[in-house]
Design a protein around this nucleic acid. Sequence first.
RNA 1: GGCCCCUUCGACUAGCGGUUAGGUCACAACCCUUUCAAGGUUGCGGCACGGGUUCGAAUCCCGUAGGGGUCACCA
Length: 526
Amino acid sequence: MEVVTRIAPSPTGDPHVGTAYIGLFNYVFARRHGGRFIFRLEDTDRQRYQAGAEARILEMFAWLGLRPDESPEAGGPNGPYRQSERLAVYHAHVEELLASGRAYRAFETAEEIEAMRLEQKRLNKPIGYDGRGRDLPPAEQARRHAAGEPNVVRLITTDEGSTTFRDRLRGDVTIPNSEIRDPVLMKSDGYPTYHLANVVDDHLMGVTHVIRAEEWVTSTPIHVLLYRAFDWDLPEFIHMPLLRNPDRSKVSKRKLDTSVDSYRQQGFLPEALLNFLANMGWSMPDGREYFGMKDMTAEFDIDRVSLGGPVFDLKKLRSFNAKYLRDILPLEEVAGRVKPLLEDEGYDCSDEDYLLDVVDVLRPRAETLVELVDQAGYFFRETLRYDESARKQLASGQTFLQDIERELSMLEFFDYDGVDDMLRDYVQEQAVPMGKVLMPLRAALTGTTNAPGVTDLIVILGKRESLARIGKALTFIDAGLPDDDPHRLLEEEKARKAAAEEARKSRVKSVGAPPAAPATGGKGSR
RNA sequence: GGCCCCUUCGACUAGCGGUUAGGUCACAACCCUUUCAAGGUUGCGGCACGGGUUCGAAUCCCGUAGGGGUCACCA
C-alpha cells in the first residue's frame, strides 16, 4: 500500500518551527517509502484565523524545500485542501453519525457549560461535559435544529472500559473511556472541530501514517472512536516528541523565537535549520550529525526516533548554521545567498571575483548571513569610519604606515606571497613585534581591529585601494584623529540606502515576480 | 488534581545484557597565530533514585521521584 503522510497546520500565526519539524518528518517518511506528502490547511477556527498565514506557511515549506505533493497551491486528487472548503463533507458525515445514533445535537449555551464547569469544580468532581443533552429525543433535536436554535453535535461516548491504540514509537496506549466526555464534533458556527475534520480528511485523503506531535496522544482515543463509528480502518499513529523551550516546557513564542520567518530574516540557512531539526529526536544509523535531506531520506528509519522532548537550543542552531556557511555549502553558493543582502545595504557586488574573495575570508567569521553582511562593510564602503580601537592603533602607527605605503607602492610581485614577504621583511627590519606594525595597518585598511589577516586584506582590496586607504589614514592622523562628522555620516548613510532601494528595484524587475512579502512584526499577535 | 507519555554529560544524542558509557554543541586550557575567527590537541562533565531478574545491568521488570502533555464549541 502506498504511504501517505500529511502536515496539517492551522493558519493562526507565524510559520512555526514545530510545523517545520513535524513537516520534515512527514516529508522524509513519505519520500523514504516512495509515498506522498500532503499539505492540508486546518482553518476551522474562525476566531484565530489570520489572513496571509496560509501563504506564509506554504512559503516556509518552499524555502525549506519540503515540497508537498498535494496542497492548496499544487492541487491534487483529494482536494480541496482547505477544511473551510470542505464543510459539506463534514456535514454529510455528521448526518451519518446522527442517523445511526452515534452522535446527538446538544443545545446548551456557553454559559450553561461554564456553569456546569464551575459546579464540578466546586464539588471537586472531574471536569467535563456530563452528557446531559444526550436524552433529548432525536426528533426533538431535529426540530429545534431546524428551528434555527444554536447547537453543537457531540459524539456519544461511554464511561465504561477503556480505549487502546498502538503508537508506533510507544506501543499500546490505553486511556480510560471516562476521560472522554462526549467531544464536540461540529461547532455551533457550522465548522467541524479538529477531531472530526482530521479523522474525516485523513480517511478520505488516504493518509496511512499520522505523524504528529505528542500533544495529540491523549486525544487519539477520540479519533479511534470516530474511525470505529465510521467503520474505517485506522492509520498508523506516530507521535513525535514535543520540541521544548529551554525550561523544558512545550515550545512557545513567549519563551523562544518560534517563527521560521524570523530565523530566515536573521540569516539562517534552510539546510542548517532542517539539519538541526532532524537531529531533534532522531539520529542517523551511523551517527553522522551533518547531513542533507537526500542522505536523511536514504537512511530514514522512523523507529530511530527517541522520545525525550528535545530542547530547542539556539546556540546549537547557530553552530549548525556556521558549519553550513563555512564548510558544507560551496563558496559560490554562499556568495549567491549573501549577494542580495549586500545589495540591500547598497553595496556594489558587480565584481563576482571580489565578492567571492570577500565571502571566502569572512565566512569562517560569521554564524549567519546577516552577521557576514555586518562584517563586510569595509570591503564595500567608500569611506571608512575608524572605531575607537582603530584610532588608538593609528595614533601609534604613523611611521609604519608611511613606510608600508612606500614599500607597497614599490612592490613588484603583487600576490599573496609577495605582499606577505614584504610585510615580514619590513617587520623584521624594524625589529618590533608583528602587531606593532600590522595592527595600525589593519586599522587603516578596515577602520577596525577585528578583521581578517592583513595580507588577505591587502590582496583582496588590491594594491590601489590598499594604498588609497593607507593614504586616507595618514591624512586622518595628520588631522589629529578628529571625531567623525555626524552630518557627513548621515548623508552617506542616506545615499547608500537610496542606492539599496535602486538595487532592490532593478533586481525585482530582472527577476520578475516580486519576492514574497517579508514577515512583519507578528510580535504582538496571538 | 485525574489521565497519558517521558527520563544517559549543561544541551542534542549513540547504546538495545558483558563498552575504560562513544560523538556533537557549549564551556575551559593549550597549540597555531598578526587582531578576530577558523583549525588542531586535551580537559570538564552523565546512566534520576530504590528494589528486583540475572553469573553480569545504562540496557529487562516493579516502585518512587522528577519533567512534560492533556483534560475547550483551539488546534
